[in-house]
Amino acid sequence: MKPAKLTTVTLEQSADVARLRDVAMTLTTVLNFGAFERTRTVTAVVELGRNAIEHGQKGRATFSLTEVNGKSALGLLVTDQGRGIPEENLSPDGPPTSSTGMGLGLRGVQRIATRFDVDTGHEGTRIDATFLPAAGLPASPQLVDQAEGALTELRAKDPTAALSEKNRELTEGIADRDLLMQELHHRTGNNLALIVALIRMSKSQAEQDETQQVLTELEVRVGSLAKAHELMQRGTDAGQVDLAEMLDEVAKNSERAFSGGALTANIEVSCATLQLDSKFAIDIGLIIGELITNAFKYAFVGRDRGLIRVEVTGDPTQGIALLVSDNGVGLPPDAERPERSNSLGWRMIRTLTFQHDATLTVDGADGLRVHIKFPARS
Results as ranks from 00 to 15, higher is better:
residue 22 D to V: 07
residue 23 V to K: 01
residue 42 V to A: 11
residue 46 V to T: 07
residue 49 G to Y: 02
residue 51 N to M: 07
residue 58 K to S: 13
residue 70 G to N: 05
residue 76 L to V: 01
residue 78 V to T: 03
residue 86 P to E: 06
residue 92 P to K: 10
residue 93 D to S: 14
residue 100 T to F: 13
residue 101 G to R: 05
residue 102 M to W: 03
residue 105 G to Q: 14
residue 109 V to R: 06
residue 110 Q to H: 05
residue 114 T to A: 13
residue 124 G to A: 03
residue 130 T to K: 08
residue 135 A to F: 06
residue 137 L to H: 10
residue 138 P to W: 14
residue 150 A to R: 02
residue 150 A to P: 00
residue 172 E to L: 05
residue 181 M to W: 05
residue 186 H to W: 10
residue 190 N to C: 09
residue 194 L to P: 03
residue 202 S to P: 02
residue 214 V to L: 14
residue 217 E to F: 14
residue 217 E to R: 15
residue 220 V to H: 11
residue 220 V to K: 14
residue 223 G to H: 07
residue 223 G to I: 12
residue 226 A to E: 13
residue 233 Q to S: 15
residue 246 M to E: 14
residue 247 L to G: 04
residue 249 E to Q: 15
residue 255 E to A: 09
residue 255 E to N: 05
residue 259 S to F: 13
residue 259 S to T: 13
residue 263 L to K: 03
residue 271 C to R: 14
residue 273 T to E: 04
residue 281 A to M: 05
residue 284 I to M: 13
residue 289 G to V: 08
residue 294 N to D: 08
residue 294 N to E: 07
residue 306 G to A: 12
residue 308 I to E: 08
residue 312 V to E: 07
residue 313 T to Q: 15
residue 316 P to T: 05
residue 331 L to Q: 10
residue 336 E to W: 09
residue 337 R to T: 00
residue 338 P to W: 11
residue 340 R to E: 10
residue 344 L to V: 12
residue 359 T to E: 02
residue 363 D to L: 14
residue 365 A to K: 14
